[in-house]
Amino acid sequence: MPNPESVRTALDGAAKHLCWSCREETGEGPFCESCVKIQPAELMGDYFALFELPRAYAVDAQYLKNKFYELSRKFHPDFYGDKTDAEKTLARDNSAYLNTAFRTLSDPIKRAEYLLVRCARGYRVDLVPPQGLFEEILTAGELLEKNSLSSEDLTTLRETGRVFAVRQDERIVSLAGLFDRLVAGDDAAKGEIENAINEIKYLRTILDRIDQRLHKTI
């Protein structure tokens, strides 16, 4: 039994892929064009390529979900119960790859980081508080430290959370344009993207804590 793992390694970087089973050219889809056996999903490319999306930040959630379902029907181990062990292993690995891809592309932060790594070499993460929200962050910090919250505190916390959520959404929306600039060759956009990602991350952390606190108090 040929080992799919070794074929995959041997084929990395090759323009055309040979099927691990029949050694014919596989074509572009997940199944070999000659013998119809499942091929490693990584050969279909990165997460964007797998979902047949251009390398851009804006994605349509509905499209993403439909494509995820379509690919799940091709890869899921449930459909490989009576296949060979090599195919079962591939189905498992492909499904895991697909699940990670879907998770990454569905999440605004993970998608931005993934895309940034693909468009620019590396990036820097320093979790600094977003500018212009100093007072709100201070207030939220104080309230989150408190042992018990009055109903007034709860209202303040809820409102502060809303301010953060609005800012977070604005920054997420801004990423689409920034990435377009970066892809078009504007290197200055990189720094701005890094700042936006850091800010969204910072806000998400604090929003999670606020959510948790509000939930517990109910």
Binding site: R92, D93, A96, Y97, N99, R103
Partner: peptide, 8 residues
Amino acid sequence: NSKIPAVS
């Protein structure tokens, strides 16, 4: 709540 199969 990660979908399975999962890899990390």
